[in-house]
Amino acid sequence: MKRSKKMTLIQKVIKYKVLLLMCLPAIVFFFAFSYMPLPGIYVAFVKFNYGSGIFGSKFIGLKNFEFLFTSGKLFTLTRNTILYNVAFILLGNFFAVAVAILLNELRSKRFKKVSQTMMFLPYFISQVLVGILVYNILNYDSGFVNTVLTSLGLERWQPYSLANVWPPLLVLIYLWQQTGYNSIVYFAAIMGIDAETIEAARVDGANAFQKILYVILPSLKQTIVILLLFSLGGIVKGNFGLFYNIIGTNSLLYSTTDIIETFVYRATMSDFNFSTASAVGLYQSVIGFVIVMTVNFIVKKLEPDYSLF
């Protein structure tokens, strides 16, 4: 320990050159796509002129952030965004873990593959198509649900005029689309659990439920915490594709479905302002940063091993 402390940077680089080399693609990637564009944040503080470029444009301070705060909607928007994301993250991870465990318990290999593929497929459907699909199932005049309802002699249902039905619906759609994909990571983690531990549990007489409860879940804990921490960073970033394609510009539903992204999209479409859009992006990143740091700090206090850094 003492020796390694004395090592200079160059010595370290030489010592770990192979490891560094293996890391190089990732370093280059993040360098090029995450660090290089950082100075561009400055665009959020200028009145951007195409001709003069980012650093040649006029500095106007916080003016670009103004519309976000004067709209009086910032609270609703941030609340909607965060609540939806909390539901997405918690339920999404819950179902992903559940599905991964269930898949792991399946004995028929063919059935396992088939069901995994079926659950995986929705992830590859574009959000635009999902929007159309949902419209065709739910619309009032000729939607699937309403056709069934009328043929059963029941009254038609009008979800596109009811703001309150959308939070559960959107969460449902999100889960349908993402669960199969998210479960992969957990499935892989379960595969990675030391077979001896599971074997030992079985020898000790643990049944399937006990095995899941006392062996598999505790081994997944770290993966779950890390994935949760990662997703928390994006908790103020809404899922624009999902919301825009399903809700569109139906202002009747905005009270429960408008998120920061969709609002900004509509508001800045009118004057096509890069600076305002970047200002909002910066606002979201700063909040996301604060949240990740706080949660990580708390995790570090409680379980130092599980924290990100």
Partner: peptide
């Protein structure tokens, strides 16, 4: 149509 606002 009833769902005119989503009728894209």
């Amino acid at each position: 149509k009833t769902d005119v606002l989503n009728n894209t």
